[in-house]
Amino acid sequence: MLTYPFAELPLPGELQQVAEGVYWLRMPLPMALDHINLYLLEDEDGWWVIDSGMDVGPTRDLWEQIFDQHLKGKPIKAVVATHWHPDHTGLAGWICDRWRVPFYISEGEYLTGLVFSRAESEHFGWTNELHQLRCGRGQKGVDSSRKSMGGMRRITHPLPTSFRRIEEGTRLTINGKHWRIVVGNGHSPEHACLFCESLNVLISGDQVIPRITSNISVSGHEPEGNPLKAWLASLERFLEVLPADALVLPAHNTPFHGLHYRLRYLIEHHEDHLIALEEACVDRQATAVELLPVLFKRELDDQHIGLAVGECVAHLNYLFQRGQLERSVDADGCFRYRSVDDTLPLRLRKRSHSADDVEPIQV
């Protein structure tokens, strides 16, 4: 099970110590998920910033308050981004320029962030349009997706024009302690988590969050991508290389214990979604949009529909590429999926703990 060792949340513009030399702070987000957790690591001669928040609302003023009141007279000496998403890099360029310090990020995240942070609606090409139509979103979905393409520029200060690459196994020495980079995939290209063995602390970004599941999406820039395969492989590897009792510092919700429990839950969560989609495609040929109620029981508003479709397609691509779903194109240009896996009835019986689910012994 999960336990939460900190009953109090840090106030806006304040720090809360969670381990030796490790401080937790929160910044606001203009969405249903209304906050992001950021972290400061104290070094002998300065501070390392882990993720930065979006360039929106009072976030710059809150950072200035932290700079003025909580740095103990020492400067910021580096910014580290777990991944490229704007709530994690929106002010990275501003902090790096203000303090003239390096920007640490994996290469895949940096290059992806550069592309999306500079994109405008006119960059929405025919491949993106075709992807939305293939999903079953129609012209309304195409128009909505085109409009959102330039959205990152409004919430992101320009990214630094250079970076220092971090990758699997990179070690950052901070205040005499080694923080090892552990890379996860699926939510983003090369998501960097930071693990300190001597403190038994994992800064997990969006790779492991306690109360919500990270979005695993396929979008028009890689419509045949299989991020769910990469995501599940990452979670399995984290079970092997990270200790069960680590203190996990996530990007959202609150710090927690119970890493392996959460990793197993996330794996099973997606396995449940996969088998539910297969079952839903037994007696019909359905589009991604038609299959959304299988994965999402709540009403989806305009803010969430794009992410929901992307998540559904990620599961469908996974099943299609494994040969468990068949895919065809209908008269409207939509992909339609049908279950073709003859092992599905047996697997459904096993999941329902049927008495007749025993396979014969092979000799």
Rank of each mutant, 00 (worst) to 15 (best):
A192V: 12
G141P: 01
S204E: 04
V208M: 01
C193M: 15
S214K: 05
G136L: 01
G205W: 08
K140C: 00
R153T: 10
G141I: 08
S145L: 00
S106K: 09
W179H: 04
T173N: 14
E197I: 12
R146W: 01
R211Y: 10
I203P: 05
T161Q: 15
I174Y: 01
E129Y: 09
T173R: 14
T112N: 12
E167Q: 11
L199M: 09
T161K: 15
D143A: 13
G169T: 02
V142Y: 06
V208A: 04
Y104D: 00
G225H: 02
R165I: 06
G186Y: 03
H157K: 10
Y104Q: 03
S117E: 03
E122N: 10
M149F: 11
H221D: 13
K229G: 09
G176R: 13
L133G: 06
L194S: 04
L199F: 07
N200Y: 03
P227S: 07
E109M: 11
G150T: 04
T112F: 13
G108P: 04
L133M: 12
F195A: 08
D206T: 06
G151Y: 06
R171M: 05
E224D: 14
E129I: 15
R154E: 14
S204F: 05
E190N: 13
L228W: 07
L232T: 07
L202D: 00
L133S: 09
L111T: 12
N175I: 04
R154G: 13
Q207E: 10
S219K: 03
E197A: 15
G220K: 02
P189D: 04
T173G: 06
R154Y: 14
R146N: 00
Y104M: 04
R153D: 07
M149N: 05
I216T: 07
H178F: 10
F195D: 01
T170I: 05
A119S: 14
S217P: 00
V115Y: 14
T156N: 05
